[in-house]
Design a binder for these strands. Structure first.
Length: 533
RNA sequence: GCAGCUGUAGCUCAGUUGGUUAGAGCGCCUGACUGUGGAUCAGGAGGUCGGUGGUUCGAGUCCACCCAGCUGUACCA
């Protein structure tokens, strides 16, 4: 091993990956518990699959020669078969269901959480390893399955402490989008590429606004760095139809300028919602617009009918448009969704340290994927599901200070006053642990008391135990000092000179007979309400 | 991938039109107050100025290329 300075190894974390400390781990655990409780309530049961699958089971990417790790992390087994780290939890579930089809009672409701991996550029709240919490209903094509997913998503957000109105579950239907494109003359195989471009442009509505989308649908758009993105090249008339007859129904959490650009005040518009309004669009009105927009496309009509059914079920169950909102601009992944698609967005305004607005994007999404299990079975197996991006949501909640990541109190530290009496101190630790009190023996160099207290302080220990010869040889029998570090910190704040300071420190500690050790420590813990869990 | 910006001590940053031995704050380590966190005081360690080449008598500073990071954008199951 190289030990000279020149050749020492640089400790570094690959980008897009993160180490996590006790605060974050605890916060994640708390979120998982809350999400799980909601999913269980809806009748879902857990099932877990491994982080590695055969690459072909994951869906599209078969690694090609030049870029075997584009998007997914892939590698070859010793028999040359390609394996990949999973990039979501849905495809592995489809594999699991297909492989165990005989033993699973359909419709099958299941949930799971775990790390997934994507080999792409990281950003704020965006990692190359992140956690998803996923729920799926396999084997039901009913709109009720989709409606339940939407309602469950809403319930989950509220269980996580996000108040109603600060999130929205946005719903659209891939069939409607296809129908709209067909209606403006973009049907047929020869328009497939252009349809993709258009859908991608629509997906950016909430980020770029009407004008940005208009440019992307037409000639193209230049971003702030001067980079140019080629547009879909639609005719003005087609762009107008898309924007005014269809996209105007989309959810708007953006600026007043957006209202003006639409030529609508929005004050009590049936198809608009703005943050300062309490009125929401009427579903019949929205779907009326959409039926118009898909005129001539059977697929489109079918799509609107499906959404209508979902709406009816949600509204009947008391979930209004403030929770489940039908939004023309939701697109989601282009690969495998076949019908309704869902997306959960946080509506809270957030600013970074420099006061610039921060956009976390969607914190969850999903949809109907009727083709995913069928790939393995050759028979139709409808399925619908939803994933929460736990890592991104946690990043957002931390940023919003909705999650407490403050470190928990550390253990009680039993200090080593006399090196030759380690066994005695270890016994005190055992006694405390026997009483269920989190505690440890000081394991560093016990050359002086100052270092040990400094250590305990940094550990956020509520108190330390000290026993020197004065205490041990007390005429009334062996005693110990239990020193309250939290109280000591309080008392010493205002003092300046050392004698005064030491005087104050003495007030924060109690001399008690050794048999009363546990009781004295408990007293300190109770004083500060310390509970480690 | 494309574009813009940024790389100086563990961290946050200074560093003047290119000019001796590259600085500050915080942090860290040692010591004093001799059985107690903080404060104070006295010392100390720590940098091939992201890398490589070039221009120059002379480069942290100018040029080229490379690498890394940030931001935007593209892609995103």
């Amino acid at each position: 091993m190289a030990t000279d300075k020149k050749s020492k190894l640089k400790a570094r974390l690959p980008r897009g990956l993160a180490d996590r400390g006790p605060g974050e781990i605890a916060a994640t655990q708390a979120m998982i518990d809350k999400i799980r409780a909601v999913y269980e309530l809806y009748g879902f049961e857990p099932v877990e699959t491994p982080a590695i699958e055969y690459t072909d089971a994951l869906g599209k990417f078969l690694p090609d020669q030049d870029r075997p790790n584009e998007g997914v992390f892939s590698f070859q087994d010793d028999d040359d078969q390609w394996l990949s780290l999973r990039y979501d939890l849905t495809a592995p579930l489809a594999r699991h269901v297909a492989e165990n089809f005989q033993n699973i009672a359909l419709p099958y409701r299941s949930y799971r959480f775990g790390w997934v991996f994507r080999n792409e550029k990281p950003g704020p709240g965006r990692f190359r390893q992140f956690m998803q919490f996923d729920a799926d209903t396999v084997g039901s094509g009913s709109a009720a399955a989709d409606a339940e997913i939407c309602m469950m998503a809403a319930d989950t957000m509220e269980a996580l402490g996000i108040p109603r109105g600060s999130y929205v579950v946005k719903v659209n239907n891939r069939k409607v989008l296809d129908g709209v494109l067909e209606a403006i003359g973009l049907g047929g195989d020869d328009n497939a590429g252009r349809r993709l471009t258009v859908l991608r442009a629509i997906d950016k509505l909430d980020r770029l606004g009407d004008e940005g989308v208009r440019l992307l649908l037409g000639e193209g758009r230049k971003d702030e760095s001067g980079d140019f993105t080629k547009g879909a090249g639609l005719k003005d008339e087609q762009v107008d139809r898309l924007l005014t007859s269809y996209l105007r129904t989309s959810f708007r959490s953006d600026s007043p300028e957006a209202r003006q650009s639409m030529g609508v005040s929005g004050a009590h518009s049936p198809v608009f919602n703005f943050p300062d309004e309490t009125t929401f669009p009427d579903d019949r009105m929205t779907f009326g617009f959409w039926r118009d927009a898909v005129k001539g496309s059977d697929m489109g009509q079918l799509g609107v009918n499906e959404l209508d059914a979902i709406a009816a079920l949600c509204r009947a169950a008391g979930y209004g448009p403030d929770r489940v909102f039908f939004d023309a601009s939701v697109v989601r992944g282009l690969e495998y969704y076949t019908g309704p698609v869902f997306e959960v967005e946080l509506l809270l305004d957030t600013k970074d340290e420099k006061g610039r607005p921060v956009r976390f994007g969607s914190v969850g999404g999903g949809g109907r994927y009727d083709g995913l299990v069928s790939r393995f079975r050759g028979e139709p197996v409808p399925a619908t599901g939803f994933s929460i991006g736990v890592s991104r949501l946690q990043a957002a909640l931390e940023h919003l200070k909705k999650i407490d990541t403050a470190p928990k109190p550390g253990p009680v530290v039993v200090t080593v006053f006399d090196k030759t009496r380690l066994a005695d101190y270890q016994k005190m630790v055992a006694t405390l642990r026997g009483a269920g009190i989190r505690s440890e023996l000081y394991l560093g160099n016990p050359k002086n008391m100052g270092n040990q207290l400094k250590y305990a302080d940094r550990r956020k220990s509520p108190c330390v135990v000290i026993q020197g010869s004065d205490e041990k040889d007390n005429p009334a029998g062996p005693h110990v000092i239990v020193k309250d570090l939290l109280l000591g910190a309080e008392l010493s704040k205002l003092d300046k000179d050392r004698d005064d300071y030491l005087q104050r420190q003495a007030e924060a500690q109690a001399l008690v007979p050794e048999p009363d050790l546990v009781a004295a420590v408990r007293k300190v813990l109770d004083r500060h309400g310390v509970r480690w869990g």
